[in-house]
Simulated scan of single mutants.
Amino acid sequence: MADLLLRNVVKRYGNYEAVRGISLEIPDTKFVALVGPSGCGKTTTLRMIAGLEDLSEGDICIGGRVINDVAPKNRDIAMVFQSYALYPHMTVFQNMAFGLRMRGLSKAEIRKNVEGAARILDISDLLGRRPRALSGGQRQRVAMGRAIVRHPKVFLFDEPLSNLDAKLRVQMRTEIKRVHQQVKTTTVYVTHDQIEAMTLADTVVVMNRGRIEQAGTPQELYHSPKTRFVAGFMGSPAMNFLPCLLEQNAAALTVRLADGTGFPVPESHLQRYRDAPGKPLLFGIRPEHITEPRGSVRGMFSEFTVVLDVVEPMGTETMVFFKLGGEAVSGRIDSGMSVPASGEKMRLVANMAHMHLIDPATDAVI
């Protein structure tokens, strides 16, 4: 096991920079997820760590050792790919043991390592089967087992769950987290699914256009995003963004939308926004902070009325969609509440304790 350091790492393809000078420190045993849309540079970064892509600039270090020119097989890393890449003519045991045989371990050591990994992954009863006799989830466990038996310094996961159905992805997320808690190896996990990243990782690194937009705990990124991109990317459904002006009336501030709707700013936020009145801004608020009227806290909840466009019952909650300030907005309603039909009016409240204001000129959250 070892820490992993990326220092001013750049990857160019001709004149195109796929990765633009990123720096990241991953402490020993920590689980870090690289997340972002297609083309953001996350997979290229992972492949540079693995040695499958050369660096254009910068350094990558494992355990304090610069590995820029070290061959992939000598980096002491193990990688789990999106495709399972199992040998179809070999049994599960043989697939998991293959890398150990290539390293010259004895039969007794190989059996001990394979059976130990199989117990962790709960696939001991599958060791005699071939891949064609396994489900997708079982094949992915075998691929993970093949990595675990090597006891590497670093695990690398390249979107390992994207080929599974939705229910199995949820199950395998739990399995991967459980395995990491037992094996405790430094892990870098690439995904485009922000829910996957938040549920698995100690630290989530949000990438966009080859750069790191923000790195932090899942809670930090969700509740305290630093940019519009992070605010919109983390969370499902995405945060609502509405153009607004910030009006000042004596010591009070009001978020004023294009249609005249006003939301008083809570006292706790006044100091933060003292220099923002009069500037064109974006008002950001997540769907779960637009709800039916409840036991409102004075100065935090602001009431308004809308005409519903779409109503989506989802069992545990009901999603409502409507126009506000000329923009499409979504809110979340408790499933126990009676919700009017599409085309009818509904009273809602915005929990302004969770508001965000964004400068559209810089996309920075104020």
Rank of each mutant, 00 (worst) to 15 (best):
residue 324 L to S: 02
residue 135 S to F: 07
residue 213 E to N: 07
residue 88 P to S: 11
residue 74 N to Y: 14
residue 172 M to F: 11
residue 179 V to G: 00
residue 135 S to W: 10
residue 232 G to M: 06
residue 257 L to W: 05
residue 245 L to G: 12
residue 114 V to A: 05
residue 359 D to L: 09
residue 320 V to G: 04
residue 7 R to S: 13
residue 154 V to Q: 04
residue 279 K to R: 15
residue 146 R to L: 11
residue 48 M to V: 08
residue 52 L to P: 02
residue 240 N to G: 03
residue 15 N to M: 08
residue 274 R to L: 13
residue 213 E to T: 02
residue 202 D to Y: 03
residue 14 G to P: 08
residue 183 V to A: 08
residue 156 L to N: 07
residue 330 S to R: 15
residue 258 A to V: 08
residue 238 A to G: 14
residue 77 I to P: 00
residue 59 D to A: 11
residue 343 G to W: 07
residue 97 A to L: 10
residue 219 Q to K: 13
residue 76 D to I: 06
residue 51 G to Q: 09
residue 298 R to N: 14
residue 148 I to R: 00
residue 90 M to S: 03
residue 240 N to D: 05
residue 365 V to F: 00
residue 127 L to P: 01
residue 103 R to P: 00
residue 72 P to H: 11
residue 37 P to D: 06
residue 71 A to Y: 13
residue 157 F to Y: 15
residue 294 R to T: 14
residue 336 G to V: 13
residue 6 L to R: 03
residue 98 F to Y: 15
residue 129 R to D: 06
residue 116 G to E: 12
residue 239 M to F: 04
residue 18 A to F: 06
residue 189 Y to S: 06
residue 41 G to A: 10
residue 109 E to T: 01
residue 335 S to T: 13
residue 14 G to S: 12
residue 83 S to A: 14
residue 292 E to V: 13
residue 308 L to G: 05
residue 102 M to R: 13
residue 115 E to K: 09
residue 358 I to V: 15
residue 80 V to P: 02
residue 248 Q to A: 14
residue 98 F to K: 06
residue 302 S to Q: 09
residue 269 H to L: 15
residue 203 T to N: 03
residue 296 S to T: 14
residue 266 P to Y: 10
residue 72 P to G: 12
residue 170 V to S: 10
residue 181 Q to F: 04
residue 28 D to N: 14
residue 63 G to H: 07
residue 228 R to G: 00
residue 302 S to H: 00
residue 328 A to D: 15
residue 81 F to P: 07
residue 254 T to Q: 09
residue 139 R to I: 08
residue 13 Y to S: 06
residue 126 L to Q: 11
residue 353 A to C: 03
residue 271 Q to D: 14
residue 268 S to F: 02
residue 178 R to W: 11
residue 207 M to L: 14
residue 313 P to A: 10
residue 140 Q to N: 08
residue 220 E to M: 11
residue 318 T to R: 03
residue 327 E to V: 09
residue 144 M to S: 05
residue 262 G to P: 04
residue 130 R to D: 03
